[in-house]
Amino acid sequence: METARLLLRRWQDSDREPFAALNGDPETLVYFPSTLSREQSDAFVDRIESVFEARGYGLWALEVKETGEFIGFTGLSPMPEGVPGSGGTEIGWRLARHAWHHGYATEAARAALDVAFGGAGLPEIWSMTAVLNTPSQAVMRRIGLTEVARFSHPRVPAGSPVRPHVTYHRANPAFAGGS
């Protein structure tokens, strides 16, 4: 899948090293409870690929078309249990710090939303992040999602500053009015 500046594609072995560097950077994962080791990062890629196999879509690796550089992911994944929207599909992203503030997350999220509502025909889409993560919340609003709930994330340790989370939602307009 392509946008004006990005290629959204399946994962390649060559993505694992830069993805591990992204996941090991405390500044990039400032809104997460902890960074990931190389083994945890690789296991995450394996889970992403298993979702693709099961659903036909997932979290696409993001590549800048002009340079071929891997910069992170954007895509669709199952919402975890115990959170508002559980059982639904989440739109999410994670970009390397040097790729922030270029509009890549919004550009790629719009493409993923087109797949969610068009190709996959999902009735709705969810997204969540730490309350402190105002940049991601801005992306959620730019792609038409609305805040629907605030909660304490059950998989984030009590007392963590990133435990308070917010969930955003958008219904597929094709499903409006019960059609």
Score class of each variant (00 low, 15 high):
73 F>Q: 15
93 W>T: 08
123 P>R: 15
2 E>S: 07
157 P>D: 12
177 G>V: 05
70 F>P: 15
123 P>S: 09
124 E>Y: 09
59 L>Y: 11
21 A>R: 15
11 W>P: 10
155 R>K: 14
140 M>P: 13
57 Y>L: 02
88 G>R: 04
10 R>L: 08
17 E>M: 07
62 L>Q: 06
89 T>P: 06
124 E>A: 13
29 L>V: 12
108 A>D: 05
87 G>I: 02
75 G>Q: 14
136 S>T: 04
112 A>I: 03
52 F>A: 01
144 G>Y: 06
167 T>L: 03
170 R>C: 00
68 G>W: 15
159 G>R: 04
172 N>K: 03
30 V>S: 13
24 G>R: 14
38 R>P: 02
119 G>A: 15
156 V>W: 09
160 S>L: 02
132 L>M: 10
132 L>R: 14
147 E>F: 03
126 W>V: 04
5 R>T: 01
28 T>W: 06
15 D>L: 05
113 L>I: 00
42 D>H: 14
27 E>K: 12
84 P>Y: 09
40 Q>Y: 01
132 L>T: 03
42 D>E: 09
96 A>P: 06
25 D>M: 05
16 R>D: 11
38 R>M: 01
20 A>N: 07
157 P>F: 05
40 Q>R: 08
116 A>K: 04
46 D>Y: 01
110 R>S: 00
148 V>S: 08
28 T>D: 08
133 N>W: 02
63 E>S: 07
20 A>T: 05
146 T>W: 02
28 T>S: 13
20 A>Y: 03
97 R>E: 02
38 R>N: 04
151 F>T: 06
68 G>Y: 13
86 S>Y: 10
46 D>G: 05
68 G>L: 08
64 V>N: 03
172 N>V: 00
37 S>T: 15
103 G>C: 01
178 G>A: 02
146 T>D: 12
124 E>T: 07
88 G>Q: 05
71 I>F: 04
84 P>S: 12
13 D>T: 11
156 V>F: 10
37 S>L: 05
126 W>C: 08
119 G>S: 14
15 D>T: 00
173 P>A: 00
106 T>S: 12
58 G>R: 07
20 A>V: 02
63 E>M: 06
175 F>N: 06
57 Y>F: 13
41 S>F: 02
147 E>T: 01
41 S>C: 02
115 V>P: 04
148 V>A: 13
177 G>M: 05
135 P>F: 02
66 E>N: 10
82 G>R: 14
131 V>S: 12
140 M>V: 03
69 E>L: 10
144 G>K: 06
77 S>L: 15
160 S>E: 07
168 Y>P: 03
35 T>I: 08
74 T>K: 13
62 L>K: 09
138 A>P: 13
18 P>N: 08
156 V>D: 11
30 V>D: 11
122 L>M: 11
146 T>L: 06
44 F>Y: 13
34 S>Q: 14
38 R>C: 01
85 G>Q: 11
60 W>K: 05
158 A>W: 03
71 I>P: 09
4 A>E: 10
166 V>F: 00
12 Q>A: 11
176 A>F: 07
151 F>H: 07
31 Y>D: 06
